[in-house]
Simulated scan of single mutants.
Amino acid sequence: MAKNIKKYMNLHNKTRNDICNDLSISYTTFADWVNAKTYPRIDKIELLANYFNIEKSDLVEDKENSLKEVPELVVINKAMKKMTPDQKKKMMNILKASFEEEFNDS
């Protein structure tokens, strides 16, 4: 979990102080989570997940080889959550046109 917290801190350009101030978490408590000394309660995991706009599983699971390791995909996923179905369809049409060979191989 500590590794995942650090990863999302880096992705979102957040410092420990930023997160502690934004979420009203004590610095020493947060430092213990980041240093893997203690493990946050589920309500704090949910608070962090909401803060980073990710799933709780993104924080607690080891997803070393996940597509979410690619920062661009994190941004795309975040944008897609805000899109209407019509906007998603248009985006997929653009991707299919741009990467026709890759889509035809599957």
Rank of each mutant, 00 (worst) to 15 (best):
K89H: 09
K37T: 08
E64R: 11
V75M: 12
E61L: 13
I94Q: 11
K82I: 12
K89P: 00
L48Y: 02
Y27V: 09
N50C: 05
K37I: 09
N17V: 14
A36S: 13
T28R: 10
E101R: 09
Q87G: 06
D22Y: 07
L59T: 04
W33E: 03
I54C: 01
W33K: 02
I25G: 03
F103A: 01
I54D: 00
S26A: 13
Y51L: 03
A79H: 10
R16D: 11
T29K: 08
M92Q: 08
R41T: 10
S24V: 11
A79D: 14
D43Q: 07
N53P: 07
N50H: 07
K81Y: 02
S24W: 05
A49Q: 03
L47Y: 05
Q87L: 06
N35F: 00
K88D: 07
K6H: 10
N65S: 11
M83I: 04
L11H: 06
V75T: 15
I5P: 01
I42Y: 06
K90M: 14
M91N: 05
K96H: 08
V34T: 05
I76L: 14
S26R: 11
L23N: 04
A2D: 08
K37S: 09
Q87Y: 05
F99R: 07
I94V: 15
Y27S: 06
N4F: 01
L48M: 04
E61P: 01
K56T: 15
P71I: 04
M83Q: 08
K63I: 08
Q87C: 06
N10H: 11
N104M: 09
N93F: 04
K56Q: 10
V60Y: 07
E55M: 05
F30H: 05
A79P: 09
E46S: 11
N13H: 06
Y27F: 14
D105A: 12
A31R: 12
V75R: 15
T84C: 05
N4L: 02
A2E: 07
I19C: 03
E100Y: 05
K78Q: 15
K3P: 06
K82G: 00
L67V: 15
K68Y: 13
I19A: 00
N77R: 14
S106C: 11
K3D: 09
K88F: 10
N10T: 11
A36G: 09
S106D: 13
S57K: 13
K63H: 11
N35R: 06
T29D: 10
M92E: 08
D62E: 14
E72V: 15
D22C: 04
L95A: 12
I25E: 01
Y51G: 01
I19L: 03
K96N: 06
E100S: 13
S66I: 03
N104R: 10
P71A: 00
D86S: 14
C20L: 03
K82L: 15
L59K: 02
V34P: 00
K14Y: 01
T84Y: 01
E100W: 04
M80H: 06
K89S: 07
F52M: 02
A49G: 00
N13E: 08
E64V: 13
E102D: 12
L48G: 01
Y27G: 02
N21K: 14
I19N: 02
F52E: 03
D62S: 12
S66R: 05
